[in-house]
Measured scan of single mutants.
Amino acid sequence: TLEEDLKKLQLSEFFDIFEKEKVDKEALALCTDRDLQEIGIPLGPRKKILNYFSTRKNS
C-alpha cells in the first residue's frame, strides 16, 4: 500500500496529505515533481518519493 511504501521511506507523516488529495499508489506513479510540490510535499521528500516510484515502475 502507499502507506507501507511511505513508511519504508520514513515519510509516513505525508500520508495524510496523499489521503486528503485522494492519491493512491497508481495516481502517485503518475505525479510529477510539480504535482507533489503543489500539494505541499517538501523538496527532499519529493525527490525520495519520485525516485522510489520511478525505480518500481521500471522493474
Rank of each mutant, 00 (worst) to 15 (best):
T1Y: 13
T1A: 03
T1R: 05
T1G: 13
T1N: 14
T1L: 03
T1W: 00
T1M: 03
T1V: 03
T1K: 03
T1F: 01
L2H: 01
L2S: 00
L2Q: 01
L2G: 02
L2V: 04
L2N: 01
L2A: 01
L2F: 06
L2W: 02
E3H: 04
E3C: 01
E3T: 01
E3K: 13
E3D: 05
E3R: 06
E3Q: 06
E4F: 06
E4G: 03
E4R: 02
E4Y: 01
E4P: 00
E4H: 05
E4T: 02
D5K: 03
D5T: 13
D5W: 12
L6T: 02
L6D: 12
L6V: 00
L6G: 01
L6R: 00
L6C: 00
K7H: 10
K7I: 01
K7M: 03
K7C: 05
K7E: 11
K7Y: 11
L9S: 03
Q10H: 08
Q10Y: 07
Q10A: 07
Q10N: 11
Q10P: 00
L11P: 00
L11R: 00
L11T: 00
L11F: 00
L11E: 00
S12K: 10
S12Q: 13
S12C: 07
S12T: 11
S12V: 09
S12G: 09
S12F: 11
E13G: 02
E13H: 14
E13W: 00
E13S: 06
E13Y: 11
F14V: 02
F14I: 04
F14Y: 02
F14A: 09
F14E: 02
F14L: 11
F14D: 02
F15E: 10
F15M: 07
F15G: 11
F15I: 02
D16R: 12
D16Q: 13
D16K: 12
I17N: 04
F18P: 10
F18D: 03
F18N: 07
F18S: 03
F18L: 09
F18E: 02
F18H: 02
E19N: 07
E19C: 08
K20N: 08
K20F: 02
K20Q: 05
K20I: 05
K20P: 02
K20M: 12
E21R: 15
E21K: 15
E21L: 15
K22D: 14
K22F: 11
K22C: 09
K22R: 07
K22N: 14
K22Y: 12
K22G: 15
K22L: 07
K22I: 03
V23Y: 15
V23Q: 05
V23K: 13
V23R: 05
V23T: 06
V23E: 03
V23G: 03
V23H: 04
D24N: 13
D24C: 09
D24M: 05
D24F: 10
D24V: 01
D24G: 14
K25P: 10
K25I: 10
K25D: 10
K25R: 10
K25Y: 15
K25L: 11
K25S: 09
E26T: 07
E26H: 13
E26C: 13
E26F: 07
E26P: 14
E26D: 11
E26N: 09
E26Q: 09
E26V: 07
A27C: 15
A27G: 14
A27N: 14
A27S: 09
A27M: 15
A27E: 14
A27Y: 15
A27K: 15
A27R: 15
A27F: 15
L28I: 04
L28K: 03
L28Q: 04
L28Y: 01
L28E: 08
L28M: 10
A29K: 10
A29I: 11
A29T: 11
A29H: 12
L30K: 15
L30D: 14
L30H: 14
L30I: 15
L30N: 15
L30V: 14
L30P: 07
L30T: 15
L30R: 15
C31A: 14
C31L: 15
C31M: 15
C31P: 07
T32L: 00
T32D: 08
T32F: 00
T32K: 12
T32C: 02
T32W: 00
D33H: 06
D33A: 09
D33L: 04
D33Y: 02
D33N: 04
R34Y: 14
R34S: 12
R34K: 09
R34I: 08
R34M: 14
R34H: 12
D35Q: 14
D35T: 06
D35S: 10
D35L: 01
D35K: 14
D35A: 05
D35H: 12
D35V: 01
D35W: 03
D35G: 07
L36I: 03
L36N: 06
L36R: 03
L36H: 04
L36A: 05
L36S: 05
L36F: 01
L36C: 04
L36E: 04
L36V: 02
L36D: 02
L36Y: 01
Q37V: 10
Q37C: 12
Q37L: 04
Q37W: 04
Q37N: 05
Q37F: 11
E38Y: 02
E38P: 00
E38F: 03
E38V: 10
E38G: 05
E38R: 14
E38W: 01
E38L: 09
E38S: 04
E38M: 12
E38C: 08
I39N: 06
I39W: 15
I39H: 04
I39V: 10
I39M: 15
I39F: 15
G40Q: 07
G40L: 00
G40I: 00
G40P: 04
G40C: 02
G40R: 03
G40M: 02
G40F: 00
I41N: 00
I41W: 01
I41Q: 08
I41P: 03
I41G: 05
I41F: 00
I41C: 03
P42I: 00
P42M: 01
P42N: 04
P42Y: 01
P42S: 02
L43M: 14
L43T: 15
L43R: 15
L43P: 15
L43G: 14
G44H: 13
G44L: 13
G44S: 13
G44I: 14
G44T: 14
G44F: 08
P45R: 01
P45H: 06
P45K: 05
P45W: 00
P45D: 11
P45N: 06
R46G: 09
R46K: 04
R46H: 02
R46M: 03
K47N: 14
K48Y: 02
K48E: 12
K48T: 14
K48C: 03
K48Q: 14
K48L: 11
I49E: 10
I49Y: 00
I49C: 05
I49W: 03
I49S: 10
L50D: 13
L50K: 07
L50R: 06
L50A: 03
L50T: 07
N51C: 05
N51H: 08
N51P: 04
N51D: 14
Y52N: 13
Y52S: 08
Y52L: 04
Y52H: 14
Y52A: 09
Y52W: 09
Y52K: 05
Y52I: 04
Y52T: 07
Y52Q: 13
F53T: 06
F53Q: 08
F53A: 06
F53M: 11
F53P: 08
F53D: 10
S54H: 07
S54R: 08
S54G: 08
S54P: 05
S54A: 12
S54E: 10
T55K: 13
T55C: 12
T55E: 14
T55G: 11
T55V: 08
T55N: 13
T55S: 11
T55P: 09
T55R: 11
R56T: 12
R56F: 09
R56V: 12
R56S: 10
R56M: 12
K57P: 11
K57T: 08
K57H: 05
K57E: 11
K57Q: 09
K57G: 10
K57F: 06
K57L: 07
N58I: 07
N58A: 07
N58Q: 06
N58D: 10
N58C: 06
N58P: 07
S59H: 10
S59E: 12
S59D: 14
S59Q: 05
S59T: 09
